[in-house]
Each structure stands twice: as C-alpha cells, then as structure tokens.
Amino acid sequence: MAVFTPVTDAELGDWLQHYDLGDVVEFRGIHSGIENSNFFLTTTHGQYVLTIFEKLTATQLPFYLDLMRHLASHRVPVPDPMPRRDGSLFGMLKGKPAAIVTKLEGAPELAPTPAHCIEVGQMLARMHLAGRDFARHQPNLRSLSWWQENVPAIASFLTDSQRALIETELAHQAAFFASADYATLPEGPCHCDLFRDNVLFAHGRQHVRLGGFFDFYFAGVDKWLFDVAVTVNDWCTDLETGALDPARVDALLRAYQTVRPFTPAEDCHWNDMLRAGAMRFWVSRLYDFHRPREAELLKPHDPGHFERILRERIHAASSHAQR
C-alpha cells in the first residue's frame, strides 16, 4: 500500500462527484505495502479507503470487488466497495482503475497470541464456506505458473545455495500440483495474503474481537489449504527464526477445523502446502527487492524472511520422515 500515483485535492474532488459520499474531511496516503496506491479518506458520511490499482486491470478488478461485496453480504467482516452513482464499483482515476471501500474498525496485531489466532482461524473458515456460491472465477495469479515465470528473472541475484533451494523447491511444487491428491483438495475463493497486517482487531475490555480481513487484491480461486498455510506461515511463525510456534499453530488450526474440518488429503499434504506458501512469498519478495518499481512511498519487504521459513518447513518435513 505505497503511493505510486499521487492525487491532488482537486483531482480527488472531481472524482468524488461520481459518488454520494459527502464532503472530504481528510485525505492522506498509506505508507505500508508495495502493490497499489492507497489512501485513507474521511468524508462527512464516514471513513473509507481509496485504492488506485497499479497492476490490476479493469477486466480483472470486478472479481475482487464483487468478492468483497459477496462476503460482506454473508456477514464476513471485510471492506465493502461503495457503488458510484451509475452503480459500478470502480472508475478510472488518473488513467487507472480505482475504488472506494469502507474502512474497518480496529488495528493490526503484530504480536499475535493464540487468542488472536483462534479468531483468525474461525473467520478464515467462515470466509471459505461463504465463498462457495460466489459466481465469478479467477485463479490465484501468484501461483505455480507465476513462480515458474519469474524465478529465471531473479536467478542471477541469488547465491549458489539459494538457486539450488529455489530450483529444487520449484520442481517439488510442480510435482505436487500435478498429483492426483492435489486435484482432490477442496477449493474456492481465497484471500491468498492473510498476513498480520491485513487483519484488524478491535480490543474489548475482556477479550479480543476481530475487526475484519482486508486487502483482497491478491485473492483468487485456489485450494483452501493454501490459504490456511499462507496464514499460518505468518501468524504462527517466529519472526527471527522462521520456526512455527506450536501453541499458535494448534490454536489456529483447531479453530479453523471447528468450522471446516480438513479432509484426509489435506492432513496428508499440510507440510507440502506450508512449503508452497513460503515459496510464493519468497519468490515475490525476491522479485520486488531486486526489480523494484519507483514509488513515492515504498518499503520493500526482506526476502530473507521467507527463505528462512521455507528452509524450516523443508527441515521439518525431513525430520518427520526420518521418525
């Protein structure tokens, strides 16, 4: 959520003529993230987030916005896109598609406890089930084919050890994705990027309360297990070592499975999917780090974090196999 495309007050005022959202009270850029230009927008009608999409096209965008509307209608706490006066959920701002969504309550929890993981696990399962009757279909655009396409573009920046790791894991994941077991894994719309900073909590006096999930612009139809693995790799990982914290893993997975139990194939391939989740973000962070775009506010993430996570997941699988 960097600012690649600045917007002046005059440009904003002209664009808001297409909405019934009242008068602007405050408008400011959001500094974190690396994919789209995002702004907090407060009007006399409420608080919103305005997003200018730097990569997504007007053809791709309806999937994400319609998915959020669908989930919101099923009482999943997500940003709800605001319709324009013509009924559309986005328009063109400075030559790029842009949308306004409701701002959720709360703040991210960057040091989660098992109690936070329980809330996330339950809501993630509810979100998966709520998406079963969503009519649109778009694959996860950062899945295996994207890794295969982009690994060659970053290979020259890697050490020999890193190249060996990424090429070996790419072959492992290609075989996993082509397997009969993989084909049987249940699937549907997934967030695909449910990190700690994409979830808000509104803390009550006696308990934690989930405010909602946001930033659905990496969402796609994928295996539900992949979505859980991506979530666990962030919410339940020690940030220094990349190792999983058993208490948080147990809390999140138990909570998820009270709503949607895993199938036998999901249980069998849990570690494969943890590795897939780590691979996806190692590749993307390597690409963003070594081939960055210019931005007014840009903070690329450390790719080494997901290299450590991937090595830890491979080590865990090897240790389990030797028992």
Rank of each mutant, 00 (worst) to 15 (best):
P97E: 01
P97S: 03
A98M: 02
A98R: 00
A99N: 02
V101D: 00
K103D: 06
L104W: 02
A107Q: 13
P108N: 09
E109S: 08
E109I: 08
A111S: 13
A111V: 10
P112T: 10
P112K: 09
P114F: 09
A115T: 10
H116G: 04
C117I: 06
E119M: 15
V120C: 10
V120F: 08
V120W: 05
Q122I: 07
Q122A: 13
L124W: 09
L124P: 08
R126P: 05
M127C: 12
M127E: 09
M127Q: 13
M127W: 07
L129H: 05
L129P: 02
A130E: 04
A130V: 04
R132M: 13
R132P: 00
D133K: 10
F134D: 04
F134T: 06
F134A: 07
H137Y: 14
Q138V: 07
Q138I: 06
N140M: 07
N140Q: 06
R142G: 00
R142S: 01
R142H: 08
S143K: 06
S143D: 15
S143A: 12
L144I: 12
S145Q: 14
S145D: 13
Q148D: 12
Q148P: 05
Q148F: 09
E149L: 11
E149S: 13
N150S: 02
V151L: 13
V151D: 01
P152R: 04
A153Q: 13
A153T: 13
S156R: 12
S156Q: 13
F157T: 04
L158I: 06
L158C: 11
L158D: 02
T159F: 10
Q162S: 11
Q162T: 07
R163M: 05
R163G: 04
A164I: 07
A164H: 14
L165D: 03
I166H: 00
I166R: 00
E167F: 09
T168V: 02
T168L: 07
E169T: 06
A171Q: 09
